[in-house]
Amino acid sequence: MGILSGNPKNEPMHYGEIFSVWQCSTIAKGAVSCYQAYMSHAGDKDLKRILEDLLDQAKLEIKECDTLLTENGIAPAPTLPERPHVEFEDIPAGARFTDPEIAAKVTADTAMGLVAASQTIGQSIREDIGALFAKYHATKTALGLRILQMNKEKGWLIPPPLQVKRPDSE
C-alpha cells in the first residue's frame, strides 16, 4: 500500500486542506449573517427563494466543515449571532438594499465560491475532502444558473461589453 492510503478519515489533513475547510466555514458564517439581513431587504419573491436556498447551503457547509475541523483537532471560527427579522416596510428606502444590488452580490459570492471550491478540490489529497468540495461545487453551479436566469428574467443582469459587430475575416 502506498503512502496515505486507506481510509481518508484516518489520514491527517495538510495545511492547505485545513485552511481551505476553515476558510469555507468562516465565509459561510459571514454569508449566513449577510443573507439573513438581505432577507429583510429583499422584496422580490424569487430573490427571497434563492436567498433561502443560499442560506440552507451555507448552513450545511458550516455544519460539515466545522465537524471535519473538530474531528481533526482544529477549532473552527466562532459562529456569528442570528440576525433578527425586520419587516421590509420598516427599513427606510434610502437605507434599504435594492433587489438588483442583492442579486449582484449573491451572483459574485456564488462565482467566488465556485473558484474556491475548485481550488480546494485541486489541492486535496484526502478523497473525502475533495469529494465534499466537489459536492459544494455542483450545488453552487446549480444555484449560479438559477441566479443567472433570475437576473435575466428580471432585467437585473448587467452584461460586460458585448461584441456586436465582428471584424471581417479576410
Rank of each mutant, 00 (worst) to 15 (best):
G94R: 02
I147H: 04
A111R: 14
G155F: 02
A104S: 14
S5Q: 13
E17A: 01
I74N: 00
S25I: 01
E170I: 10
P84V: 09
V164D: 05
K152C: 11
C24K: 11
F133N: 02
Y136N: 12
K63Q: 13
F133L: 05
C65R: 01
E71F: 02
G113E: 12
T139E: 13
N10W: 03
T70F: 02
A31F: 13
E64R: 09
S33M: 08
S169Q: 11
P76D: 00
M13I: 00
P159W: 01
L80R: 07
D53Y: 10
E87A: 12
A103E: 09
T141R: 12
R49G: 10
T67E: 15
G94M: 04
C24M: 08
E101W: 12
W156Y: 15
E52A: 13
A93S: 07
I147V: 10
E64D: 14
E101Q: 15
Y15W: 08
L143Q: 15
G94Q: 05
L68N: 00
S33L: 04
E71I: 06
A28N: 09
V32T: 09
I62L: 06
Q57Y: 12
I121N: 04
D66E: 03
A58L: 09
P161S: 00
L60D: 14
E153Y: 07
T26L: 11
Q163F: 01
P100K: 03
F88T: 12
C65W: 00
D53S: 14
K63G: 03
I147E: 00
P84E: 15
I125M: 11
D53K: 15
P167M: 04
A75R: 07
E61H: 11
Q119R: 10
P12N: 02
S169Y: 07
Y15L: 10
S5I: 03
D53W: 08
D90S: 15
A31I: 13
K135A: 14
D56A: 15
L54N: 12
E89N: 13
N72Q: 01
S124P: 06
W156T: 03
A104G: 15
D128R: 01
K63I: 05
G2K: 13
K48D: 07
A31C: 11
L148I: 07
I27W: 09
S40T: 09
M150I: 05
D44M: 03
A103K: 06
N151I: 04
L55E: 08
K152D: 13
I62C: 07
T79E: 08
A95S: 14
G122I: 11
E87L: 12
T26I: 03
